[in-house]
Amino acid sequence: MAQVETLQVKKRDSRGKRHARRLRREGEVPAILYGHGEASVALSVPASQLDMAVRHGAHLVNLQGDVAEQAIIRELQWDTYSKHILHVDFTRVSQHELVEVVVPIELVGEAPGAREGGVLEHVAHEVTIECPASAIPEKLVVGVNDLHLNQALTLADLKLPQGARLVGNADAVVVQCREPVEVSEEITPEVAEGAEPEMIGRRAEEASDEEEKG
């Protein structure tokens, strides 16, 4: 189960991008807390604490300070280079409430199919599950020690923790061992030199006429 991190939050009255940018310069991240039919509360969280929680794969967090509640990290907004968190959404939860969360899938072991000349392809990197808020797993581990060539594991093959339920299509492939595809390393011009794409909404004759004129 993922660790429950504690975040010291402050209420914020200021709104808008100027104030949000000022907060970020001061080492805080603007946040919002909502859910359970109660009014939403605008908050700010220390960036260092939030970074730590996210790095540890935390979903459930204890909010302390101006607001004392338990919440899950619903959404994170990152900057263009995925370095800094710009904003975070918290949803109120109670300990045993069922929540839908996205959990990463990690592959462990060595597939015999790889020794048989196959290539291991990790297709689904994360999965949506429904589980009690107090028992959100950090990640789901899939063993590939029995995966031979031309075999695949689906979401149905995942071992879910107690009380968890898969959301979505259980037939979706998580990992497969396929034969390597020979990819050309040479430039093979599929189109002739100077070829142009087809024009939408114009007949070939018109296009050729225009070219002659041009």
Partner: peptide, 24 residues
């Protein structure tokens, strides 16, 4: 295999400006 679109609406386009950072 040189990449290019199969079908286009216009043969030529204006240069344009590259403004801002990628949001998608």
């Amino acid at each position: 295999m040189a990449l290019m679109p199969r079908r286009v609406k216009h043969r030529k386009s204006q240069r344009g400006r590259i403004k801002g950072k990628a949001t998608r």
